[in-house]
Design a protein around this nucleic acid. Structure first.
Lengths: 340, 340
DNA sequence: ATGAAAGCGCTAACAC
DNA sequence: GTGTTAGCGCTTTCAT
């Protein structure tokens, strides 16, 4: 798919030109020069009230709409668009991320342009390039790719990137991630406190950084907690709620008495599969709406909040685009509802 | 909030200029004219292989990125951006709508720019105007406003709009909506078949068109089905799952034995409140992930599908922007899993 | 095979 | 208070 690539729009019918009136049309109708119209539009001083009125009349009469493309070009090239690349809007976690980011971005008077990479590194790269060509003001990315060195020059040049949820391999840039290891440690701790003897982690594709981190964290935390190796199970490569439910039956057959769901989708599947089963504890890394209903305990890992934080980090970076210290914010996560 | 309005970006720090190299920089380095570079970029004929190579080298050396803003301006003004205005990304229904639309739009080689109006008519109007000023190719709107006559001129001019989920008051334009009345009739029918004697509808704010439609449909369908007026309850103004849960306790106290949730959020709240209660049937207009788990039956009202359909309608409209017949597609909804 | 000039719609600098 | 000129980065005539 070459979506979003430079000339991608060719695949769609040629744009029938929409006849927007321009400054000169307004000027002609009002009997003034285009500069005067421009002044009126920008409430610049030195316009006689009478002229201003005439211009305004012509504007509404013609249905004139200022052309941001032209203004931005003239103004030096940077748009007030901010790009965001996520993997999938259908996933509540990423939708929440986008919602939080959009909120903060629009409060700052900027617009968000959203694209979904579907965990496809190739597609993601095309999307990012296209966004860059559109001269967006900055970019928030939930990386799906494996090498971001191609963005080095842009970053050096003062273009602002923030990577969210996962760091960018081979690129030093601002990053906002959750404390995956700490979160998993909290999960393990909670299960242990509940008296679980044999515990399992179910995680997404290991190619996804967060999954890999959480798996690694699980081994470490479980060992530290004193669980013997043969009391531990890890099931990975689970990408949908449906798959989670299916893979879960194996666990439930076994002697596992505690399960950690590494994300919301998995928690949904595991929660459903374990409905009505006694003596099995379930905890989810991500927070999600129907968790309590399913009897699933969660961490306070909130997508919307993460999105807001990412956007704030980007806005902060705008103030100092070429400052060479890139920061990685690690958002702590703990059991929802506070301590213990 | 004047987010997305013409000069909104002023609220953020002035853009430090990101020094993107331009065509002339590449040309200078390669020792050719800018026209030649342009030719290479557009794989135009009549460029000697040797020159092409030199140009390509310069491009990568400088990290040149073509400027879409400039190209679009030159090319006549229409971008390959498609705008979408929804009420809230945090609501799974709208997120699904956006996901479906994004999929279809990006398959057509266009990009989606997403904005959220938060059910605020004022904000929505500002967003739409801003998108229009950015010369997006077309616009998909889930309307929150009460009067769209201000878009009349743009539509006449050949600008493409598609309204989704709700029609646009005072504007004749392409529209994609669900069969709200038919859906509610199916809900009532199902409850009746289950033997429910006293049924209730819980709906969103009546100011929202879909809520109002579903309420009206409820009265009609229930009457047709032979329910006496005093066997019917309507609770409206319920905007979140939390509210739905709270308002539900009243119903559960009463003799109601069948509840229709007019949307997914309400279904979630009602479903939770009714957990473990015997002898009460619940059916939801919207389909949603954990429905079966909650013991909630749903219609096959799928947001993603609706989003795809909206995008397809827009793409079709692009082919014939000034064709004066605007169509309203009413998507039928029925009990999920087929008949009866 | 390559280049010079004009212009997309707008705004900034300087006239008047 | 108002108009003229130039130019943002690019593509499109039209020359050469």
């Amino acid at each position: 798919v070459n979506a979003l690539s430079t000339h991608a729009a060719r695949s769609v019918a040629p744009a029938h030109i929409v006849g927007h009136p321009k400054l000169s049309d307004v000027a002609a109708l009002a009997g003034v020069s285009i500069k005067t119209v421009s002044r009126v539009l920008n409430d610049a001083p030195n316009v006689s009230p009478d002229t201003a009125r005439r211009v305004h009349e012509s504007i509404t009469l013609l249905g004139y709409r200022s052309n941001v493309i032209a203004r931005e070009l003239r103004g030096g090239g940077l748009s007030n668009l901010v790009g965001m690349v996520i993997s999938d809007l259908g996933n509540p976690f990423y939708a929440g991320l986008a919602a939080g980011a959009e909120e903060t971005i629009s409060e700052a008077g900027l617009d968000l342009i959203l694209a979904t990479a579907r965990d496809d590194g190739e597609r993601e790269r095309a999307l990012i390039n296209s966004l860059l060509e559109r001269r967006v003001r900055g970019l928030m990315i939930v990386p799906s790719g494996s090498d971001y060195s191609y963005l080095h020059a842009d970053r050096q040049r003062g273009f602002s990137f923030v990577f969210v949820d996962r760091p960018a391999p081979f690129l030093d840039a601002d990053t906002v991630i959750a404390d995956n290891e700490g979160g998993i440690r909290a999960c393990v701790g909670w299960l242990q406190k509940q008296g679980c003897k044999r515990i399992a982690l179910m995680a997404d594709l290991e190619s996804i950084w967060t999954a890999e981190q959480r798996i690694a964290g699980f081994w470490t935390a479980a060992a530290e907690a004193g669980y013997p190796r043969d009391a531990l199970t890890v099931i990975s490569g689970v990408h949908t709620a449906e798959e989670a439910r299916e893979r879960c039956t194996d666990l439930l057959m076994g002697e596992v008495d505690g399960i950690i769901a590494a994300n919301d989708l998995i928690a949904l599947g595991v929660g459903e599969a374990a409905q009505g089963r006694e003596g099995i504890r379930i905890i989810s890394f991500d927070d999600f709406p129907s968790a309590s209903l399913l009897g699933v305990v969660t961490l306070n890992h909130d997508a919307r909040e993460l999105g807001r934080l990412a956007a704030e980090t980007l806005l902060a970076r705008f103030e100092n685009p070429t400052y060479e210290r890139y920061l990685t914010e690690v958002v702590p996560v703990s059991l929802r509802g506070g301590a213990s």
